Simulated scan of single mutants.
Amino acid sequence: MKGQCWCIVICSLVVALVGAVSAGPIVAQEAQKWELVNPEGVAWVEPVKIAERVDSLEGKTVVLFWNGKHNGNNFLDRLAERLDAQVEGVRVLKSWEEPLNVPPGQNVAAQMIEAWQRVGIKPDLVIASQAD
């Protein structure tokens, strides 16, 4: 048993020496430069100018925007009914119906602006529903 312990110690020393010799001389290495990357990707959020408060909706054009999530259109349909019933001269456009037909997608803001230009409207107010 005693001989086995010495054998293990000697083998360990030989392995350490062989590893040190094969590694070569120790040379000062240049500092490593790391670039941190967010695995979720980078999201550039651009500031949005908030519109001034509207005193009244009478005679205004209101666009209702639905993000495509479940039951969001139900909320906006009911809101459209209430606006039509309670506000005189309001024009309510639903983004998912004619004449806009903007399907929910990645760059919705650009699609909405394009649809407004195509139809020739300039909405006074946009109401969005983020329903789930």
Rank of each mutant, 00 (worst) to 15 (best):
residue 2 K to G: 14
residue 2 K to S: 14
residue 2 K to F: 13
residue 3 G to N: 14
residue 4 Q to W: 08
residue 12 S to G: 15
residue 13 L to H: 10
residue 15 V to T: 15
residue 15 V to R: 12
residue 16 A to K: 06
residue 16 A to I: 09
residue 16 A to S: 09
residue 16 A to C: 10
residue 21 V to C: 14
residue 22 S to Q: 15
residue 23 A to D: 05
residue 24 G to F: 06
residue 25 P to T: 15
residue 25 P to N: 15
residue 27 V to F: 14
residue 29 Q to C: 07
residue 29 Q to Y: 08
residue 32 Q to C: 05
residue 34 W to R: 11
residue 34 W to N: 10
residue 36 L to H: 07
residue 40 E to T: 05
residue 42 V to Y: 07
residue 42 V to G: 01
residue 44 W to Y: 07
residue 45 V to T: 13
residue 45 V to Q: 10
residue 48 V to Q: 10
residue 50 I to F: 06
residue 50 I to L: 13
residue 51 A to L: 02
residue 51 A to S: 10
residue 53 R to A: 10
residue 54 V to D: 00
residue 56 S to P: 04
residue 59 G to K: 05
residue 62 V to D: 01
residue 63 V to L: 03
residue 64 L to W: 07
residue 64 L to C: 11
residue 66 W to G: 07
residue 67 N to H: 02
residue 69 K to C: 00
residue 70 H to E: 02
residue 71 N to E: 09
residue 72 G to L: 00
residue 73 N to S: 14
residue 74 N to A: 12
residue 79 L to A: 10
residue 79 L to R: 05
residue 80 A to Q: 10
residue 84 D to M: 08
residue 88 E to K: 13
residue 88 E to A: 07
residue 88 E to P: 04
residue 88 E to F: 02
residue 89 G to Q: 04
residue 92 V to M: 07
residue 92 V to A: 08
residue 93 L to R: 03
residue 94 K to D: 03
residue 94 K to N: 04
residue 95 S to R: 01
residue 97 E to A: 04
residue 100 L to T: 09
residue 100 L to V: 12
residue 103 P to E: 00
residue 105 G to S: 06
residue 105 G to M: 00
residue 106 Q to L: 05
residue 107 N to D: 09
residue 109 A to W: 03
residue 111 Q to N: 09
residue 114 E to F: 13
residue 116 W to I: 02
residue 117 Q to V: 08
residue 118 R to A: 08
residue 118 R to M: 03
residue 120 G to I: 00
residue 121 I to Y: 09
residue 122 K to R: 09
residue 122 K to Y: 01
residue 122 K to L: 06
residue 127 I to Q: 04
residue 127 I to V: 14
residue 131 A to S: 02
